[in-house]
């Protein structure tokens, strides 16, 4: 579904991504872990065209998308959430998801001003269905900026799902959540977000990621240091070293 080949990105002298080659198979939930600053979010940013790649190539379902603009990548069925939330705070929860249907191929330009009643009713129903699925239905008319953090993360997920993406990139979907909330988010990803699409998840919470993902890739200083099934990867000596430094022996 998504394939990168020797993908690199440098910021001045800092090599944020170094010759990263990955392949994410259709339908899988692929985990991306690594210490802070190891290049995980940079990978999302290069894939979605926020930053151009310094070298290397990216394919999406057989089509090369290296250095396409975000709008072009989005149009090819990619959606993402953000580690530092980017919801529309002064809009209602409903409007946030409603806005995310913008630019879908089924939306004709004249509908921007003159809505097609039947089609729009269907889209609104879809928004309500997504809010229902993410547990936000009773807060639909609240201003999104007033939601507690876990709900804001769920809203970001609902908003990404509104685009019905083939590839969903989740950047720390459980960031700042309690263990219970994290578990609920994992269930949400497994049961609502993942079926029928490919997911990539960045997360620091090992329990969540190893329960959720079939395969993991570990980055450190922009390089891949391990890849494979969660159990094997998380006990890999290089991974322990990267995460725990010299205290690895004590862990």
């Amino acid at each position: 579904m998504l394939r990168t080949e020797a993908l690199s990105r440098a910021f001045g002298g800092l090599q944020a991504l170094a010759e990263l080659s990955l392949e994410v198979a259709p339908g899988e939930i692929f985990g991306l872990i690594g210490p802070n600053g190891s290049g995980k979010t940079t990978l999302f940013n290069v894939v979605t065209g926020v930053y151009p790649a310094s070298a290397g190539r990216v394919w999406l379902g057989g089509e090369e998308i290296t250095n396409l603009k975000p709008a072009q990548v989005i149009r090819r069925g990619v959606a993402r959430t953000f580690q530092n939330l980017r919801i529309f705070q002064r809009m209602t929860v409903f409007e946030n998801v409603w806005a995310a249907q913008h630019g879908l191929p089924t939306l004709r330009p004249r509908e921007l001003v003159l809505p097609d009643r039947a089609a729009e009713a269907e889209r609104r129903a879809e928004v309500r269905r997504l809010l229902e699925a993410t547990g936000l239905a009773d807060r639909a008319e609240m201003l999104a900026g007033g939601l507690p953090l876990p709900d804001q993360r769920r809203l970001e997920l609902a908003r990404a799902l509104a685009r019905d993406p083939a590839l969903l990139l989740l950047d720390e979907p459980a960031g700042g959540m309690t263990p219970r909330e994290t578990e609920a988010m994992a269930a949400l990803i497994r049961e609502v977000a993942a079926p029928g699409r490919t997911c990539m998840v960045i997360e620091h919470k090992m329990d969540m990621i190893s329960a959720l993902c079939g395969r993991l890739c570990v980055l450190n200083f922009g390089r891949k240091i391990a890849e494979g099934a969660p159990d094997a990867v998380l006990s890999h000596p290089d991974v322990l070293e990267a995460y725990l430094g010299h205290e690895a022996g004590d862990a």
């Binding site: 989005i74 993402r80 002064r90 806005a99 913008h102 001003v113």
Partner: peptide, 28 residues
Amino acid sequence: VLLYRTRFGLALRAVSENPRAARFMGIN
């Protein structure tokens, strides 16, 4: 009415609030 009842208005408000997020919602 235009700003709060139509998709164009929705897009305009989205861009004015957070252009970087709006871009990822497929808004031109």
